[in-house]
């Protein structure tokens, strides 16, 4: 409902952000695709590659074309399957933990009690903590098997302390990341709970609805929509968890897809291989995104 003039102005107004995002997406993506077909190692000066494989096709900068070899190399690397599995486990577990405990915590915070505002800010705080900080604090001061706080607790109960990062590296990363994302789920679900119609609550009370049925038939359906929002937003961030793995040095056992690509590229300097990995990560993320977008798309209509 607007005039042609405003619509034209509107197009002008969105164009800067559209153009910038388009460039931000297309330029690196097309370069990555191109690199993924090159034998391109920063430590391997280009001419040598052409000397070693005479007759290899070269691009303008004398880099050898590699065909799909980077892809087949990356896809057959056992580390790839490990990393993909870790990525999925990390996303899946953190989502499950944060939605489940987020719901419970939101129900708790929705009750009347003394110091609600203060407790709420305490619960939000983990979300404000820099990932590198939370990684270091958890790894050293909490989960350290010798003098960490958890070890102290175990010992004071006469139990054997768990060596978290040695024996359960992925679980450790999951716990740490979940700690950061539970507050987010709690907050969104709490906001939504508070918008639940007061009259509905009273009507249910008048009907003598038992608390569990009330939760199941009234509260839960109301929370479905915010839950999809939580899942969408958390997935975006969780697929790309990096700092926690980078800092804790759990690359081998708990490394996910982003970290593997980082290892290929900036540690092994294999630009071709890293690019192939990046493209594979993009494809996988898009498969996930496809389903998520359909979900949030329905939400947007409502």
């Amino acid at each position: 409902m607007a005039t042609q003039q405003t619509r034209t102005l509107g197009k002008l107004a969105v164009s800067p952000s559209v153009l910038m995002l388009l460039m931000w997406m297309l330029v690196p993506l097309s370069m990555t695709i191109y690199f993924s077909f090159l034998r391109y190692n920063l430590l391997d000066p280009n001419p040598i590659c052409s000397l070693l494989t005479p007759g290899a096709l070269l691009d303008a900068e004398n880099r050898c074309l590699a065909g799909f070899s980077n892809y087949s190399y990356f896809l057959t690397d056992p580390a790839f399957f490990k990393a993909m599995g870790n990525s999925l486990k990390l996303v899946g577990w953190v989502l499950a933990i944060s939605v489940a405990s987020g719901t419970l915590l939101a129900l708790l915070l929705d009750q009347a009690f003394y110091g609600r505002g203060f407790v709420r800010i305490m619960m939000i705080a983990p979300f404000l903590v820099m990932p590198t900080v939370s990684a270091l604090v958890w790894q050293n001061m909490l989960m350290d098997p010798v003098s960490g706080f958890f070890a102290f607790i175990s010992k004071s109960f006469g139990l054997q302390p768990i060596d978290w990062f040695t024996y359960h590296p992925l679980a450790s990363v999951i716990i740490m990341v979940a700690w950061q994302w539970v507050p987010f789920a709690t907050l969104i679900l709490l906001t939504s709970l508070q918008s639940l119609d007061e009259e509905q609550k009273e009507a249910a009370e008048m009907d003598g609805t038992p608390p569990l049925s009330y939760f199941w038939y009234i509260v839960l359906p109301h929370l479905i929509r915010p839950m999809t929002v939580v899942i969408l937003i958390e997935t975006i961030f969780l697929l790309n968890v990096f700092a926690e793995i980078y800092v804790t040095g759990t690359a081998g056992p708990a490394g996910n897809l982003p970290f593997l690509v980082y290892q290929y590229g900036l540690i092994a300097n294999d630009i071709g291989g890293a690019s192939a990995g990046g493209i594979i990560a993009v494809i996988l993320a898009n498969i996930v995104a496809f389903f998520l977008m359909r979900m949030i798309g329905k939400n947007l209509e409502a």
Partner: peptide, 28 residues
């Protein structure tokens, strides 16, 4: 305030750029 037919798709597309893993763009 001046939505066109494509506005919702545009919003979706913008959000979907967040879906692209940074590692896909890291090297370039």
């Amino acid at each position: 305030f001046a939505p066109g037919k494509r506005t919702k798709d545009l919003l979706m597309w913008m959000l979907s750029t967040k879906m692209m893993p940074p590692v896909g763009a890291l090297i370039p």
